[in-house]
């Protein structure tokens, strides 16, 4: 019988991981006493593989692989309900964000389509300085192999003159490119 969520805590506890999450999120994860407020406040719990309070517990236990590979960190919409309601004043949403960033860096993103969408968005920012929705949805649909996502919305937004078909290129594109380049070299350090 397969039991996907049985954790061998002693074997897989990664102390370094705990320290890194605390450092990168700026939050003391060890303060969490599992009251469950965050999980109860989160609108996405029904679709998470681990409710956000369990993510917090898994971080405390150093369960790097389980946490960074979870759906939860990518379905999190950064809505801040958890942070607002944590009695220990832990900025839980910042922990989730740090975990997302780490999962990209480690190449273990569970919801690749969401990262793809974000990357396409940033690519447009880099190319044009601004984002135009037509281009974004089109690029995402092609790369995600979902050509008809939101095609039903097209006609009415077009008729109402809401969709720019051409991107607006800003003049300071060079400045934007330089921000991206300096960021990349900073990250490489």
């Amino acid at each position: 019988m397969q039991r996907p969520h049985v954790l061998q805590i002693q074997k897989t506890c990664d102390q370094e991981f705990i320290k890194r999450v605390e450092r990168e999120s700026g939050q003391q994860v060890s303060k969490c006493y599992q009251c469950g407020n965050c999980g109860a406040s989160c609108g996405y719990t029904f679709d998470f593989d681990f409710p956000v309070n369990q993510i917090m517990r898994l971080v405390q236990l150093g369960q790097k692989e389980t946490v960074l590979g979870s759906r939860s960190i990518w379905l999190c919409a950064n809505c801040q309900a958890c942070t607002t309601r944590c009695p220990c004043n832990i900025e839980v949403a910042r922990v989730m964000e740090a975990l997302r960033i780490m999962s990209v860096a480690e190449g273990v993103v569970s919801k690749k389509n969401i990262l793809l969408f974000y990357d396409e968005f940033l690519e447009l920012v880099r190319r044009y300085g601004r984002v135009f929705e037509t281009g974004l949805v089109a690029r995402y649909n092609i790369k995600a192999l979902k050509p008809f996502t939101d095609a039903d919305l097209g006609p009415q937004v077009l008729m109402k003159g809401k969709l720019a078909l051409k991107p607006h290129k800003i003049k300071g594109l060079k400045a934007i490119e330089e921000i991206f380049k300096r960021f990349e070299s900073h990250r490489g350090k």
Partner: peptide, 22 residues
């Protein structure tokens, strides 16, 4: 003049420095 995209949610999959600079 010549404002640019703030990076919004997507820049948060990377170090916050990127979105912050944008």
């Amino acid at each position: 003049p010549d404002w640019n995209c703030c990076g919004s949610t997507p820049s948060h999959s990377y170090d916050p420095l990127l979105g912050a600079a944008l």
